[in-house]
Write a protein that binds this DNA or RNA. Sequence first.
DNA 1: AACAAAATGAGATATAATATCAATAGTAAA
DNA 2: TTTACTATTGATATTATATCTCATTTTGTT
Lengths: 135, 135
Amino acid sequence: MRQSKNSTASTENSGAKSTRKTWQKEAVYNIFSAMRNHPTAEMVCDSVYRTYPTIGRATVYRILNSFVDSGKAIKVPVCDGADRFDITTYPHSHAKCRVCGNVFDIDADFDMPEVRDSCGFTVENVAVLYFGICC
Amino acid sequence: MRQSKNSTASTENSGAKSTRKTWQKEAVYNIFSAMRNHPTAEMVCDSVYRTYPTIGRATVYRILNSFVDSGKAIKVPVCDGADRFDITTYPHSHAKCRVCGNVFDIDADFDMPEVRDSCGFTVENVAVLYFGICC
DNA sequence: AACAAAATGAGATATAATATCAATAGTAAA
DNA sequence: TTTACTATTGATATTATATCTCATTTTGTT
């Protein structure tokens, strides 16, 4: 995603509410929530496309971002490549294989760094990412 | 992939790839290592450009990546925007402000999740990233 | 049905990073 | 020093990622 200078998210238009039901939102949610491989936006596009060839790419991107904004999904930072989207929102961490590039869920069996306030930084969320080899 | 087929039998740098000294590598290292704000590759480019206007953009990208490969720097995953490069390689974590976009070092005063082997995944490294607001 | 606003979709634009490849330049051998 | 070899560079093209623009369509409401 491009970095915007002074706004947090493009979908957050002051007071704008995405309340209207559309078949596009339904389609993206149904297909994305069935994917358990932390897909990129493009991967979701491809899947949605197979069933709904008329849907626009920008629409899929917009809808995925709206899921993140509304807490229905999270973005996983993976350092390289496209953003990953994760339908699993409970606290857990991720592992990325540097060979195959796949991203896996990792149960947070260690003490998950807790959200804290220090150094004048107000923490809202934390992401833990392991790098290594899966195979 | 390239093998030194006709080099003398005893090379001190066995397997070393980027061995030749160039003023470009010197320039990028000197300027990058003085930047303490987790710059993107573009930010390094801009800085290097001011002193060495003839250096190529691709060269800066290549050299920065070689620093990461050789362990002289790390890439910081920030979920949004361009990759960040960090000259500080000792174990610590990072915080990213969702308002100003800046990235800060955070001392790992909690128990840093340790590198482990679980679920068949061989962990080589771990990154902890806080999201929040700095101001 | 008619209306206003939200949402979409096609394409343009912005941004990020690597690939290509001829020319250059570092290093060792002669 | 000169030569030979090839790693490295740099201009440009290409690929990848993601958002923006805006005319058109659709939704929810009256």
